[in-house]
């Protein structure tokens, strides 16, 4: 008798699951629509296009890519869902720039890929092979910031050459006193994000000009680990994006860099397009799948919203805004995709 009761319970649970599945079907169609991979979804698309005049959109926008750009993109995605289109689900993931491109450059891949570096030649070639038209949208500027321990009172100002010699292999610099005889006779502990990060690639390719890093460098996967390591080691020095410094100002000190005309502190003003820190500033991007934008109105609508609002949210997430002309250029390009 008891067994029957339990079987009944299981049957009810199973039934509930089935009902839930049925209830979920309309939404599931939206997912398929976002993939744009079958007949039915195409007709759905046409319907939504007709609706686009009334500005009520639904479906999903799928974004993956850089963890550095993630806070900015997540912030804007949330604003869009709250203020613009509450029936559109903008999903933001953060697999990393390179891993994100792998999900972007496949059939029915993601709609956007955030990147803390420019698309590589081989990635662009792959897109061409697959027939995916990719549009690069510059979204913000990030200043590569070198951070030291709060108690480090000697290395507060450095030249780019000094910083490079700390991280470069065979530069002969092992101790602070190798840089300046008046500095302590103690070993420097260089640190940074590891090869998975676009920040590392920018540092290696642009700042070090592809010279090897010193083999004592401590490369980490998580930025929070780097923050703690430098906060606890008076001889530590690490590099990462400006956002991670500005949110940990109470634990870390930023090195002021002397590019030749006096020491410059990295700040939202100095890391901007023509700012004094521009030499260590890099643009960050998002890459748009143009076919998806023309097939799916919610993707195009979100892309336009993104470009319109990008500079409003850059500052609070630790990025410098891009020049207004570049915003305008992006918006004009996207407006051109409307039909």
């Amino acid at each position: 008798m008891k067994l029957k009761k339990y079987l009944l319970f299981l049957a009810i649970a199973a039934l509930a699951a089935v009902i839930a599945a049925c209830g979920a079907e309309p939404k599931a169609n939206n997912d398929e629509q976002s993939k744009g991979n079958n007949e039915e979804s195409k007709s759905n698309n046409e319907e939504s296009k007709d609706n686009s005049n009334s500005e009520k959109l639904e479906g999903s926008v799928v974004i993956d890519g850089s963890g550095t750009v993630y806070p900015l993109m997540a912030r804007i995605a949330e604003e869009y869902m709250i203020n613009e289109q509450e029936n559109v689900s903008v999903e933001v993931s953060r697999a990393g720039t390179s891993a994100g491109f792998k999900k972007f450059l496949v059939k029915d891949g993601t709609d956007f890929n955030d990147a803390s570096r420019q698309i590589k030649d081989e990635e662009a070639a792959e897109a061409k092979d697959l027939g995916i038209e990719v549009k690069e949208l510059k979204v913000a500027l990030d200043g590569l910031t070198f951070v030291i321990n709060k108690e480090n009172d000697w290395a507060k100002e450095m030249t780019p050459e000094q910083l490079i010699s700390i991280f470069k292999a065979d530069s002969g610099v092992k101790k602070w006193s190798d840089l300046d005889p008046s500095w302590p006779d103690e070993e420097i502990k260089p640190m940074g994000p590891n090869e998975n990060h676009g920040t590392y690639e920018f540092f290696y390719e642009t700042i070090l000009e592809k010279q090897d890093l010193v083999d004592t460098v401590n490369l980490q996967q998580d930025y929070s680990t780097l923050v703690n390591l430098v906060a606890e080691d008076v001889n530590g020095i690490a590099f990462f994006g400006f956002g991670y410094y500005v949110n940990n100002k109470d634990k870390l000190e930023a090195v002021h860099v002397d590019f030749g005309s006096g020491a410059v502190e990295p700040s939202l003003d100095t890391i901007s397009e023509d700012g004094d820190y521009a030499q260590f500033t890099r643009p960050v991007f998002t890459y748009l799948n143009v076919q998806h934008a023309t097939e799916k109105p919610q993707v195009l609508d979100y892309a336009i919203y993104l470009m319109h609002n990008i500079n409003n949210f850059a500052g609070e997430t630790g990025f410098a805004p891009i020049p207004d002309e570049e915003v305008k250029e992006g918006v004009e390009y996207l407006d051109g995709l409307k039909n």
Partner: peptide, 13 residues
């Protein structure tokens, strides 16, 4: 996804 705001309504979401 790290940011997914709508509530899941069933096992296909």
């Amino acid at each position: 996804p790290a940011l997914l705001i709508p509530f899941p309504g069933g096992i296909l979401d």
